[in-house]
Write a protein that binds this DNA or RNA. Structure first.
Lengths: 338, 338
DNA sequence: TGGCGTTCCGCAAACGGTTTCGTGTTAATA
DNA sequence: TATTAACACGAAACCGTTTGCGGAACGCCA
């Protein structure tokens, strides 16, 4: 069922049909009625591809995330999806699998007309290499990009992040208020901007509270291929009464291994993680954690992007914004003193 | 950068440029070289929308899942994404949020030219209502559909499922081999085809092993809004030494509440769940569970769909297939007898 | 009756490609 | 020298829409 079909059946021109269906004033009321009735009867729907070609707008948003199995990204994705749907857009997702090459390939695939803009979080490899030419290329093509969470200062665009530094600081102070003295940090290698900021927040809080920063109490783990040994040794070699972990999985692992050694949580060791995921809520004990409000983050990123798309911002004044989502600490069993 | 631009610059016709870039034999070698060099220099990429319009193929697959936060669906999604990318397709995802209306709206949005086919798992509401007219409509439009996991006999198409009945049967026998006598089942209300089959497998195994089916030992919970009370009462009111749960979350909840009552796992109560997710692997204790091989399921569904799309199956002989993925039982701490 | 303004509709271009067919040039062959 | 085949390229249709513009028909007024 195309405009042409309707035009032929009703013996009018294609343009008349198009205008009638779009309620143009150029078309007489009875003609409109006739055409609309016919269209409804045969369940006519305009072909979106043709429309996209015509107005050079696809109403699709490209989303590129490093890992779909990661709870945080999943919630951000959901936030994006919900928001863009409300504004009549669809989402095309690609997963970079933390790989620079996949990120580049996916962007190139989507950039040739398939999408009106990108929302993305940088892959681990991209952050390591510090190579953002693929971002610059799509930007040069006039395609807007919004970065969230894993962002970089080396590429100018709208960004959405959380207050990593402050919330890490707050978490450490929570420990201190509860009387903890030997507070450890379990983080990733430092090329992640988020881990770095969280580490800085940790360090600052330690120092400001007069505990004295001790690099021995910082454990840096590879992002993937987690194994028990390093954590286990770390726990053996240090006297620790609290651990701040930069993600949920690290926290759960720490708790499990500490418990295995006969330590009680939270009485012997308190634990705080990042990402309020399933593990935090249903782990044993339940985990005090930083809620990054992924849904909100996704929605904000989507709002920034669509606004930029629709405002046809040819004022390339590049008034880029960085929105900061306030993370919140959710207290659960892993820090409650009994 | 369009064909027209290149043609103008190089003073040849558009068709010559098109043919040259597609390595047509009609074009002389030197002309080809010149055009290709120019195209590469200016980083020309054909507009996918225009191509889609021309050959009425978008190379997009529509995926509709009930819940992106559900680990199982996430793994299936990943399987789909990986497979279709290899075959040059992209994925457009929509989340139905277990709602019939959202499922319908999403399908209609995507059906008008945006995608070449659907991969989907039915929402809870759709299964309850048993209304599949939206599926039939897109099928009538000639758009192929592949259902996975949450399928229905009332709509003819390719399907991918796991052997729910058999694996539930196997799980119960595992309990029995370990000497368990009072084996409970925690399931959802029965409109989910998967839960129903798992329940049947449970029941059959109980009966075949001479344990005598006791409906008292079956707890039926609502799918959402889980609260502790029902499970807690269930544990109080019955003498139970093993529980089979139809999903991961139920299993984790059961373990937590059982432990709260002072019961030891697995010595007092053994537990088996479905879905080998994060909770199963990192829960306390680690959970014996049914691995549904979501990745494989997604890949198979994608293969079925793309084969059907590309084989231009006008032999509407409707030789629909139902592929069955063999689930496997992963043994962890929650069933090991000590 | 001539001129003017409305109303209603069709023509054709445009979006960016692919593809069929036709045409002009050259060289080989009878 | 005339015929023909091979080769290289261009014109135009097509995919399904939207939209500016022109024109026909009509009514109204002077």
């Amino acid at each position: 069922m195309t405009l042409k079909d309707i035009a032929r059946e009703l013996d009018v021109s294609i343009s008349t049909v198009s205008k009638a269906l779009n309620d143009s004033v150029e078309i007489g009321q009875d003609t409109k009625d006739k055409i609309k009735a016919f269209a409804k009867l045969y369940n006519y729907r305009p072909n979106n591809i043709a429309i996209s070609l015509k107005n050079k707008r696809t109403k699709n948003i490209g989303v590129i995330i490093p890992d779909i199995l990661h709870y945080f990204f999943t919630t951000v994705f959901r936030g994006i999806e919900q928001y863009v749907n409300e504004r009549g857009y669809n989402v095309i997702v690609c997963v970079s699998d933390e790989s620079f090459d996949k990120e580049v390939i996916n962007m190139e695939m989507l950039a040739n007309g398939l999408i009106d803009g990108f929302i993305m979080s940088l892959s681990a490899e991209t952050q390591q290499k510090n190579d953002f030419t693929h971002l610059k290329e799509v930007a040069d093509q006039g395609i807007p990009v919004v970065l969230f969470d894993r962002v970089t200062d080396d590429f100018a665009c709208d960004k959405v992040i959380i207050n990593d530094f402050e919330i890490a600081y707050e978490a450490v102070e929570k420990f201190i208020q509860n009387g903890r003295k030997r507070i450890a940090l379990v983080t990733t290698e430092s090329y992640f901007n988020v881990s770095r900021k969280r580490s800085e927040g940790y360090q600052k809080a330690i120092i400001n509270n007069g505990l004295g920063f001790d690099d021995q109490l910082v454990l840096r783990l590879p992002y993937a291929n987690l194994n028990d040994l390093e954590i286990s040794n770390f726990l053996d070699e240090n006297v620790i009464d609290a651990i701040l972990c930069v993600n949920e999985l690290f926290a759960i692992q720490c708790m499990r291994l500490a418990q295995k050694k006969g330590l009680k949580i939270p009485s012997d060791i308190a634990v705080i993680g990042f990402t309020d995921g399933i593990l935090s809520r249903y782990g044993h004990p339940t985990l005090t954690t930083v809620d990054q409000h992924g849904d909100r983050m996704g929605a904000v990123a989507a709002r920034l992007l669509i606004d930029r798309i629709e405002n046809d911002i040819s004022d390339e004044s590049e008034n880029f914004q960085t929105e900061i989502i306030e993370a919140t600490l959710i207290e659960r069993e892993s820090t409650v003193n009994d």
